[in-house]
Every structure is written in structure tokens, then in C-alpha cells.
């Protein structure tokens, strides 16, 4: 039908918005000092809990102020830094650990396979929140400890994916041939296996990115994450919860930020998995 043409172009233009949105949020995080209108930590006890658009002494608080009179917009922009950098770091670390473990297990087989994959099972069976509480109890809360908690809880997922992919890629003739040529284990893994399993791993990583944003917010919400006064969306939600009835904007805007960040990451992950699925 004739409907095909317009629908196609609409789809095409819509297809880009998750990437554009994600890029915008990343830019906000990177250029926070330039973009934020005010110091995110500056308190103004006279201007507490003001509605969005509140003006005082020539300064406009576009998204209102919080319970200590800090500018919500500035805190939101700085909060994006925390969310995104925690997510990026933990995705990188858990990805590297998990992929290394999974590839070794899937390629070496035998004794290594049993050992490493049982370790994966053990880690998967520990509830994430329990592990988080234990880690924070041992190491104390803070930015890097959040990254460590997330890495400890998330690497098994990459290990599973990398393991399964390595099993199938490892059986393909070019891998056998490279062994036949005398290629060492690290070389075969790096040159032949990794490039051929990286697609599915990237899909998982994008979806995990969204999850990591939520996990970080959750930990901060519980007070186990980044500590005040550093702006973090999870912590903003946590304090904002006490004021939802009187000052809805404190919790709403970080919630919206989380929603958009996670949504764009997930949409990109879905599209990636479609393209990679088609490429097979």
C-alpha cells in the first residue's frame, strides 16, 4: 500500500532519537561545569522548596529548589555525571572481567570450564543487594565502591554470554585452523574469538548500561552509594520522596532523567540486537 512510504520515513527519523537523547545526556554530564547555571552545592536557606521558575535576585531557578535551597537544574546536570560515569565504569569493568572469564571457560574447556562456570553460578546466586550491603559494610560507601559492587554483581552475565558465544565460535573451522598453525591461546582468543563474539557482548553491555544507572540510583536511594552533598539522581529521589506532596519537582525531575537515560540505552540495545541478529 501507499502507507509504506510515509511510515518508512517516519520510522527512519524516529530511529535516531534514542541516540540523540543519549548523546545529549552524555554532553550534559561532560560539560556540566559550563552548562549548569549555578553551583549545585550552594545552599540558600531562604529560598527552600521554591517552585520551578522561581526568581530571586536576578537568578531564575528553572526547575525550582530543593529542601536546602539548591538549584535542581544544576544538581540534575551534575547528577548525570555520577549516573553516567558509574554506569560506564561498571559496564567496562564487569564486561572485561566477564568476557575474559567466559572466553577462557568456553575455549579451554575441561577443568577450567567447570571451575570458572561454577564460580559464575555462585556469583549469580548471591542477591545483588546483599552483596552491595556487605561490600559497603566492608569498604564504606562512595563512588568507587559503588563501581566495585556493580562489577562484582554484574560480571557473571557477560561471562555467560561470552562463554556461549565462544563455544560456538570455537567450533568454527578458522579457529581450528589457527590452532593448526600453532597460534597460542591468548592470540587465538584475542585475534579470532573476541572480534567474533563482541557483537552480542555489546548488546548486553548497552542493556546493562541502563540497568547500572538504575542500580546506582537504587544504591544511592538506600544511602549506600555516592554520599551527600554530591548530587546524584538516586539520592535526589530519596530526599524528594519526603516532599512529594508539597514539592513534587524535587523527585520528579531526577526520576524523569533516569527514565530517559535508561529508555534511550535500552532502545539502542534493542536496535543493536536486531541489527546484529540480522547480520548473522
Amino acid at each position: 500500500m501507499n502507507m509504506v512510504l510515509p511510515r518508512f520515513s517516519v520510522q527512519k527519523s524516529l530511529a535516531w532519537w534514542p541516540a540523540v537523547l543519549l548523546a545529549a545526556l552524555v554532553c550534559a554530564a561532560v560539560f556540566a561545569p559550563v552548562l549548569a547555571p549555578l553551583d549545585p552545592d550552594r545552599q540558600n536557606l531562604l529560598g527552600r522548596l521554591k517552585v520551578p521558575g522561581y526568581e530571586s535576585r536576578g537568578v531564575t531557578y528553572w526547575l525550582g529548589t530543593d529542601e536546602l535551597g539548591r538549584d535542581i537544574l544544576s544538581r540534575l546536570i551534575y547528577g548525570a555525571r555520577i549516573s553516567i560515569s558509574v554506569a560506564v565504569l561498571s559496564v567496562l569493568l564487569s564486561g572485561i572481567v566477564g568476557v575474559a572469564v567466559g572466553m577462557l571457560a568456553g575455549y579451554l574447556r575441561g577443568w577450567w570450564e567447570t571451575l570458572l562456570m561454577r564460580l559464575v553460578d555462585i556469583f549469580l546466586s548471591i542477591p545483588a543487594i546483599l552483596l552491595a550491603i556487605i561490600t559497603v559494610a566492608v569498604l564504606g560507601p562512595g563512588f568507587f565502591n559503588v563501581v566495585i559492587v556493580l562489577t562484582l554483581t554484574r560480571w557473571p552475565r557477560y561471562a555467560r554470554v561470552a562463554y556461549g558465544q565462544t563455544l560456538s565460535v570455537g567450533k568454527r573451522p578458522f579457529v581450528t585452523l589457527s590452532q593448526a598453525m600453532g597460534g597460542s591461546v591468548p592470540r587465538v582468543l584475542w585475534v579470532h574469538i573476541l572480534p567474533n563474539i563482541i557483537g552480542p557482548v555489546l548488546v548486553v553491555a548497552t542493556l546493562e548500561f541502563g540497568l547500572m544507572v538504575l542500580f546506582e540510583a537504587g544504591l544511592s536511594f538506600l544511602g549506600l552509594g555516592v554520599q551527600p552533598p554530591t548530587a546524584s539522581w538516586g539520592a535526589m529521589l530519596s530526599t524528594g520522596r519526603n516532599y512529594v506532596a508539597t514539592a513534587w519537582w524535587i523527585a520528579t525531575f531526577p526520576g524523569l532523567g533516569l527514565f530517559l537515560l535508561v529508555l534511550s540505552a535500552n532502545l539502542i540495545g534493542d536496535r543493536l540486537s536486531d541489527t546484529i541478529g540480522k547480520g548473522r
Binding site: R172, P173, F174, L177, S178, V191, H192, P195, N196
Partner: peptide, 12 residues
Amino acid sequence: FQEPVSSLNPLM
């Protein structure tokens, strides 16, 4: 080997 195409790494 018998299968030339699958005996080559598709990404190299």
C-alpha cells in the same frame, strides 16, 4: 580444509 569460506575469520 574443505570449506574455504568458513575456514577464514570473517572479521580479519
